[in-house]
């Protein structure tokens, strides 16, 4: 399949009422601005404070994960004629009255695909109690880095949402792949 960023973006914007949609370089500041905007927006829409909190938690983890773990292709990838340094897509959609979907996409080296697949499949397979134990085990492990590491961000997202994390990869070239995560918050 040919890599077509516009098609990926267009397809991912489907499925509900778009609350926030971004394509381009990510930065720490952009993450905070986005968190603030979405929190205010959901509060203004009289969303249940418990849901706002859950959404905020999931957004923090997912967007910081995106920022820390993206790996840009070494061929000067450009979107809209702009050379990109930290290219991502994130889209936050209200699917229906009971659920939101957060989609994130970033480049990774293709050799990480297997690791990520195994890790997410493992997390998706675990029960609530098993996730709790895994979280504590990774938290209390000295190998844990400042970036998170050990997939703790992903474990946290799975625990907080209680939903399976969906993912897919679209190969960009023979070295890099575009990694897509879909997180449902209910």
């Amino acid at each position: 399949m040919e890599f077509n960023i516009d098609k990926i973006y267009k397809d991912k914007r489907k499925g509900g009422d778009i609350i926030c949609s971004y394509i381009g370089d990510i930065s720490g500041e952009l993450i905070y601005e986005t968190l603030e905007k979405i929190e205010i927006l959901l509060t203004d829409r009289d969303e249940d404070p418990k849901v706002v909190k859950k959404v905020y938690n999931v957004l923090v983890e997912a967007l910081q994960n995106l920022f820390h773990h993206l790996e840009m292709p070494d061929d000067n990838f450009q979107y809209n004629g702009q050379p990109n340094k930290s290219f991502v897509i994130f889209i936050f959609i209200k699917i229906n009255n009971f659920a939101y979907r957060l989609t994130t996409c970033n480049f990774i080296r293709r050799e990480r695909k297997h690791f990520l697949k195994d890790r997410i499949n493992q997390i998706n397979f675990l029960t609530k109690e098993e996730l709790k134990e895994l979280y504590k085990q990774v938290l209390n492990n000295d190998q844990f880095s400042n970036k998170g590491g050990g997939g703790i961000g992903m474990i946290d997202i799975a625990r907080k949402t209680g939903n399976k994390i969906e993912y897919n990869f679209v190969d960009y070239n023979n070295k890099y792949s575009f990694f897509n995560l879909d997180i449902i918050v209910t």
Binding site: K53, N57, L139, F144, N146, G148, G153, D156
Partner: peptide, 12 residues
Amino acid sequence: EYFNTSSSKCIL
């Protein structure tokens, strides 16, 4: 009110 997983290790 909120803490990220990166803080969770530091809090530990």
